[in-house]
Nucleic acid binder design. Structure first.
Length: 179
DNA sequence: CCCTGATTCGC
DNA sequence: GCGAATCAGG
């Protein structure tokens, strides 16, 4: 083989597009494609103009987010929002930590389309495991999500998303706190 | 420390 | 055009 697979052939680009729009992460896609790093994937994605799949362009009040230097980014990215799967058997999440106050415009209902990963009991619950409770805490069948939690947070990516919902407050603030 | 995507810039 | 390095964040 002349090509070690390290080039963006049409097929690979197509697969990239598919997987990216499908919601896979860059690293996952990179692993799927092989012979490429996640950086390569991300770079390609941007070059293809596929970036910001879940984010919409904000023509007003933006910029100055992560640009320490010169930049001439093209803010033209019409991103189609894929329909989200509807839910199911969510067991009344113990959401009680919402500083969002009362906002009739925003509802705190989220869909838990997350596959039941390896739930664990309190015994097997490790530090880096999602502490999202599932079921009735009074029953012996009570378990925790157990998925990989975001470091520094008690929940996995998905549950963190539903736990700390709104706060329509952007904390995009410039900070230079690097050692 | 694990991960995510975003951006820059030398190649 | 490519992607490693870097950045900013969960």
């Amino acid at each position: 083989m002349i090509d070690a697979g390290a080039t963006w052939t049409d097929e690979r680009v197509e697969l990239l597009k598919k997987l990216w729009t499908d919601g896979l992460s860059a690293s996952q896609i990179a692993a799927e494609l092989g012979n490429v790093t996640r950086n390569a994937v991300i770079g390609k994605v941007h070059r293809l103009g596929l970036s910001g799949r879940a984010k919409d362009a904000k023509p007003a009040a933006s910029t100055a987010t992560a640009r320490p230097r010169k930049a001439t980014r093209a803010p033209s990215a019409p991103a189609p929002l894929p329909p989200q799967p509807h839910p199911n058997n969510v067991v009344v999440a113990p959401i009680a930590l919402q500083p969002v106050t009362q906002e009739p415009s925003v509802y705190i209902e989220d869909d838990l389309a997350v596959p039941v990963s390896e739930r664990v009991t309190i015994m097997d619950l490790r530090e880096s495991m999602c502490r999202w409770p599932m079921g009735d805490p009074t029953k012996p069948e009570f378990r925790f999500c157990g998925a990989r939690s975001i470091t520094g947070l008690p929940y996995c990516t998905h549950h963190a998303r539903v736990a700390y919902q709104p706060v329509a407050d952007r904390k995009r603030d410039r900070r230079l706190a690097r050692a």
